[in-house]
Design a protein around this nucleic acid. Structure first.
Length: 107
DNA sequence: AGGTTGACAAAGG
DNA sequence: GCCTTTGCCAACC
């Protein structure tokens, strides 16, 4: 499994995220066996027409991490999939989080 | 071969 | 409860 580049393993994992759910960098990182930062790094390296639903990946708080205009696109796509955001622009990970068993801490 | 960077996270103040 | 500092580890220069 470790034969492929790390970012490709990460992308494969993110593709596994069901529609209408969101995961976190830390969770994905733990699943692929690397640090959360590498997940974010992999996202930044994604091509535009990628098949990876990168918009389903949020930080551990359930907020969008990116600081560019793409954040707006990300939020819109998630809302279109049924993910609701709080007033502060945060999604409820305990509700939409994935995987469900590995509940993230509500910070 | 070495130093810098970064779509994060957890701990400390 | 918010802001700052430290740790992480792969990719890039």
């Amino acid at each position: 499994v470790a034969a492929r580049p790390l970012y490709q393993r990460i992308n494969a994992m993110i593709r596994r995220i069901p529609k209408g759910r969101v995961s976190s960098y830390g969770a994905v990182g733990a699943l692929v066996g690397c640090d959360a930062r590498q997940v974010g790094y992999a996202m930044a390296a994604l091509p535009d027409g990628t098949n990876v639903p990168w918009h389903r990946v949020l930080n551990v708080r359930g907020a969008i991490a990116i600081r560019t205009d793409a954040a707006i696109t990300q939020r819109l796509r998630l809302e279109r999939e049924g993910v609701k955001f709080s007033a502060g622009g945060q999604a409820d990970l305990s509700k939409h989080g994935w995987p469900k068993r590995a509940s993230k801490r509500s910070k």
